[in-house]
């Protein structure tokens, strides 16, 4: 056990939609600078868990903390109080999120997409925000596409703009929700390359993915989820090459 505060700590995190128990007690820890890949069949609760981390979904039971702070709640003594929207927004802006379907703002250019939140949420001066956005677009290989609207960009380019948009808030944690699942196969590589670079720069990342190659190469840890629980977790080479659990074996034999 390290002395540093874990970036993400989940203890018995549970979530249900009506009678559908999507998460049935998730325990996991992500240390700063670590890259965690979550794999598993669809409907296993991977995306829901990711959405709980930045409070897009409310956790029903258990405890979920980011950088030592309980997500979505304020701790006062032993009791938890739900956060006001403003306070929840403050928590969220430290956590970047990249969506499966990019969710770029279609009425804004790539550059405008990236500068929107820094200006509106952080109150950054426009000149400074543009400077930073150009830097970030350069970093994801789209330095010349700043004035393009999302509809003029390929899926891979859109997803890279979405990554730049999330990075513009200087997050301490980045969440990726199947970032390459909506892409044509030949566009997957360019997005994964950007994510590899980001991992190499020391960003803490949680990636829900079906890209086993990426998990093996980049992840510090892999978690296999099924039926709302963590079935198996550990070193990527261990979990992916020598899975101990039957369900993990069955899943990997289908996707590898």
């Amino acid at each position: 056990m390290s002395a540093v505060t874990p970036m993400v700590q989940a203890e018995g995190v549970s979530k249900s939609f009506g009678t559908n128990h999507v998460l049935r007690g998730i325990d996991l820890t992500v240390d700063p600078g670590e890259v965690l890949c979550i794999i598993g069949p669809s409907g296993s609760g991977k995306s829901t868990f990711l959405r709980c981390i930045n409070h897009l979904e409310r956790v029903d039971a258990g405890r979920l903390a980011v950088d030592g702070q309980v997500v979505g709640y304020r701790q006062h003594g032993d009791k938890l109080y739900e956060l006001k929207p403003k306070e929840a927004a403050r928590q969220r802006r430290e956590i970047g999120m990249v969506f499966q379907r990019f969710n770029l703002f279609p009425h804004m250019t790539a550059l405008e997409n990236v500068i929107e939140a820094p200006i509106r949420v952080k109150g950054l001066a426009k000149g400074r925000a543009v400077e930073r956005a150009e830097e970030l677009l350069e970093r994801v290989g789209l330095g010349d596409k700043g004035d393009h609207y999302p509809s003029q960009l390929s899926g891979g380019q859109q997803q890279r703009v979405a990554i730049a948009r999330a990075l513009a808030m200087d997050p301490k944690l980045m969440l990726f929700d199947e970032p390459t699942s909506a892409l044509d196969p030949e566009l997957v590589g360019e997005v994964l390359d950007v994510m590899k670079g980001l991992a190499a720069s020391g960003m803490t990342m949680i990636v829900v993915t079906h890209e086993m190659g990426f998990a093996r190469e980049v992840a510090d840890a892999v978690v296999f989820m099924d039926g709302g629980v963590v079935v198996e977790s550990g070193d990527p080479s261990e979990v992916l090459a020598n899975p101990r659990h039957e369900r993990t074996k069955a899943f990997l034999s289908k996707v590898l």
């Binding site: 969710n103 929107e116 939140a117 949420v121």
Partner: peptide, 11 residues
């Protein structure tokens, strides 16, 4: 997804 993206950015 638009509202979600904006919310996730802290707007």
């Amino acid at each position: 997804g638009q509202e979600e993206a904006a919310t996730a950015l802290g707007m």
